[in-house]
Amino acid sequence: MLVRVEKGSSVPISRQIADQIRAQCLSGRLTPGTQIPSVRQMARDLAVNQNTVLRVYERLTAEDLLDVRHGEGTYVSLKIPTAQLNGQRNQYFDELTQLARQGRMLGIDDSGLHALLDDALKLSLEQDNSQDLAQAQDPSSESSDGENA
């Protein structure tokens, strides 16, 4: 699992961490049942206050995304809630709306925006494929997000 923290951002650190773990759980990048680093480990890796990480884990547990098994570790929940996905989708739609507005401000008309969306879809698919290929070709790579390989 790969999480990065941007210092000095206008997004609070706890939200940065929570958003990234949540996105990885919901997108299936982290498969249900995968063990994730302990609070202590995560705090050390990111050089972030343990209480911050603890609060994030607690919040994600309350959202049924993580499953804390006492004395064992923290796992990606086996029952990822779909209601949660709807919330994320609403947020995504808001962001997309914002992007559409920005496009208009740049003078791109509706058909232009449609064309750009098609390109973006194609490009993201290509990028995902080449990433998977790179991982498949290099089994020795111990990248921290390779747990779901």
Partner: peptide
């Protein structure tokens, strides 16, 4: 600085 923050988390907060 990052190392220092890490030291603070592991050697003082923990």
């Amino acid at each position: 600085r990052r190392d220092f923050n890490r030291d603070l988390v592991t050697h003082m907060q923990a």
